[in-house]
Every structure is written in C-alpha cells, then in structure tokens.
Write a protein that binds this DNA or RNA. Structure first.
Lengths: 244, 244
DNA sequence: CGGCGCCTTGAGGCTGATCAAGGAACGTGG
DNA sequence: CCACGTTCCTTGATCAGCCTCAAGGCGCCG
C-alpha cells in the first residue's frame, strides 16, 4: 500500500505555497503503527487528537444498541481521521484498522494554530469536510432509496475511486481488501445478501472476481445502474482566499 | 415561525466579538421571499451562492433516476443552505421551500473574505460542517441498521431539537409541518408505512397527535428505542483560535 | 492436522413495499 | 355559500426483497 501524507492530499486540491506546505508538515512529527484490527479511537473517547492516515486502510463506524454496526467511511492514506470529533468533546464514531496501518497524530491546538496562520487552509478544511458530507449523503440516498445490487455496485466504485486517489496506478482491477461483511455493514445489508449481489453482478458481466481482486468490467454501466457520482473530482476551490 | 439570522446562530456556539458580529452581518444585505414549494437551488445548478435561511422551513434532497427522492436535511431558520456546493462547481443537491420562507443570499467570495479576515469563523464553519456530517451519519446508521419505527422516532426527535434550536419556547409539543411522505423520503420509507409507524408509536403511548401537532409523551424512551443522540449539544469549541 | 475466518448456497420467514380505496380538511371558483 | 378539486391521511390485502438460520467448502496459520 502506497504512502500518502497530509501535504500531498492538500496539494491535490490546492497549489500550496512553500510556507503552507511547511506549516502542514510541522503538524505531524511522529508515526504510530497499528496492527490489523486495532482500534485507534473508540466512540465516546475524549476527542483531543486527530490523525493522518499515512499507510493502510481503516474504517470509521458506529455500533447501535441492537448490536449491529454501520460503517460510515473507508479510510485511505492521506485521509484525516477523527475529524468527526472536531466539534465535540467526545468522538461520535469508532476508528479501526482493517490492515496494518501507520497514522500520524495531530494535536487539536496545532490545527487551531494552522487555521489561524493560514486561513486558506482552514477554508480547505471546510471544503474537504463538505466533500465528506456529500459522500455521506450519497450513501444515505443509496441505502434509503436504491436496491441492494445498486448499493454494492456504488460501494465498489467508491472504493475504486478512493484507492485511485492516492495510487494513480489503480485501474479497473483492484483489491479492496474488505470482507463481504464489511461491505454489508457499509451498505445496510447482511454479508449473505452482499454475497448474492456480487454473484449477480458477476452473472450480469458487470464485474469479475478472483481471489480478493475485483475487476470492473463495465464501470460506466455500473455507475449508471447505481447512480454513482465521483465526488472527488469536479471540485472548484479557486474562490478560496489568497494564501498568506 | 421565528426569525433567526446567521450571527444569532454563530452566537449560539461562540461569543462573537463586536468585530466578528459586524463582519457576519455584512455578509447579507437583502432578503428573498420564497413561496411554499418553490425551488431555491436545483441539483447541478451553478453553485455560486449560499443563502442563510432566516424564516420558514426548507429541505435539501436528491432525486434518483428511479424517480425516488432522498431528503438529506430539514432546514430551519439560522441554517446556511447551499453549503454543499462550497467545494463544487455545481450543487450536488436541490433546496426547496416547505413553507413560505425568507432567505438572505451570500456571495461565495464574501465567505472567502470572511474566512481570511476572521480565521476563527472559518474554523467555526468547519465545525458546523462536521456537525452536519455527524447528523448525516446518524441518519445513515438509522436507515441502514434500525427498524422503520425507530427511524421515524429518531426523525421526530431530530426535528423537535432543531426547531428548539431557534425557538427555545418549543417543548415536547410541536408542529413539524412536514407531510408523512416527507418523513418517508427522509427515512427511506414509503408514506404508507410511515403512517403505520406513527400509529404504532401512538398505540405504544410514546407520542400523541392531533391535527398537525405532535406531542412526545416519553421523549427519553423514544430516544432510547431509536438510538437518538442530540448532536447540537455537547459541542466543544474552546480550542479554536483566538478571535482577530 | 485442526481451527478459524471468510465465502457460498439453500430454505423459509418477516419487514416494509405496492396496489387500492375511501375519508377529512382546505382552498377556489361559480 | 356550496360544489368541487386537491392534498394529505388512513386502512386493508397482497407481494417481494432482504433477513435469518443452517450447512458446507476453501485457504491460511499455528
């Protein structure tokens, strides 16, 4: 799995000035290694820190008292994790590692100082949060109003696009590295039904599978049947304030 | 319906300095009146403006190509509407008026200037966006992983808390002013089934209804059965940068 | 070799959708 | 002031998508 740091991610959206880049790089000074399955932040933990995921795959989720789990978001290198606690004393969600991971902690006050000295980066933070919000609404619409098959298809496309964001070498064949149970917990389905939907997508010749590898045989058709939109492209941040 | 302006809303979360308050008030200089049912922003419209809703109730939603609608969020006075287009050239969602409304337009560049001159308010904007994101994840979890009855209960609680945010006079009896079809489009149910769930909640003596008015007879129990959490309280913004 | 995690497939059941019909409330025009 | 259309609510009957329960297989690791 490729590495991707925060300045790289920010650089995907804005041309950072040397000053800005240096300030972003000063946010993190150490790396934490996580084992597969490890929990980084637990729901209702004190929310005093964020992290940047630099290597590996994580998920954020909530557990309901009926025992089921809703996966909110899959996290890939370059993502800020724990930002949901930005406004709260306690984290509203749990963050766990799906694979071995590396994360770099950022103290909350350091983010405050960054926003203060580089308001443009504060605006970028708002914009990236909005993107996350829109992605969340897309999944809400999928879970609320589309068929099981469409939800699974949309999730595959989303994972593909997100993995490509930090590894441009990824094409229509990729290894999501998530179990069918995780796909189910993200799409509001059971693992059993996810399995059947994957089989149907395969029978429809929309995808192919071997081992853990997926191939999107007809990405355009897949996007059509699932109403999928890539929210990480088509951004417009030119109107943000000038860099300091 | 009470009026609530942007500076009032910001003031709920931070003690604004006179300077900050003046800057926020300068963002808007005119009011637009909308008729019941009017569409303010259409999906894929150019996203050049935001609005502050000062009076009335609106919704943001997306339409899927299977013809169904997913309501993302009910909007109340003091809410910024159209922020989903913050990062995009085109609005990802439609905004429409449920009742007669008043909105105050804000040009995108003005928000940029505000963030530049008052980075603390930029940070507040990020925080409020995070709150919206968390509310969206709550509904995602509800739609993905809870029963129809729980979803309807959670939505009633959410609407109650949101209405109370700008009108502290609202207690356990209130008039949401939404149809059962709208409740269904927000919770991923049909209007028919929403009706049955409301009847069940009534039979369980959890709510009472007469005309369009709802009374939450046992709000605590309602919150328990629906895993509802009020995301508008318990915020912690003390760590934001100092005001300029 | 045994255990475990994950995938796969079948059978039957339940939740919520669909289809249908009627009623109440309200606004509008004659 | 009444007739009518429209919107919204309500309830019943039937249907289907997805869940639950169950069992077996494969691959990997200790």
């Amino acid at each position: 799995m490729l590495e991707c740091r925060l300045a790289d991610r920010f650089g995907d959206f804005l041309d950072l000035t040397p000053d800005e880049r240096a300030a972003v790089e000063r946010l993190t000074d150490r790396d934490l290694r996580l084992r597969r399955g490890a929990t980084l932040i637990r729901e209702n933990d004190r929310a005093a820190e964020f992290y940047v995921l630099s290597r590996g795959t994580m998920i954020s989720y909530v557990l309901l008292d009926n025992g089921s789990r809703q996966i909110i978001r899959f996290l890939f290198p370059g993502d800020i994790v724990g930002m949901a606690g930005f406004a709260y004393q306690q984290s509203p969600e749990t963050i766990a590692a799906l694979t071995e991971c590396e994360v770099a902690p950022i103290d909350r006050p350091l983010i405050g100082a960054l926003i203060d000295q580089h308001p443009r980066l504060g605006a970028l933070l708002t914009a990236l949060t909005q993107v996350e919000r829109v992605v969340c609404t897309d999944r809400l619409a999928a879970v609320g109003r589309t068929s099981a098959k469409a939800r699974v298809a949309a999730l595959l496309l989303e994972i593909r696009d997100r993995m490509r964001q930090c590894d441009s070498g990824i094409g229509d064949t990729f290894s999501p590295g998530v179990t069918q149970e995780e796909i189910g917990d993200a799409t509001g389905l059971t693992a059993v039904h996810v399995n059947r939907m994957l089989r149907q997508l395969e029978d429809d010749a929309l995808i192919a599978r071997e081992g853990g590898r997926f191939t999107l045989l007809e990405p355009a058709k897949l996007a059509r049947v699932s109403s999928y939109v890539d929210r990480y492209s088509g951004l417009d941040l030119n109107w943000l304030p000038r860099p300091r």
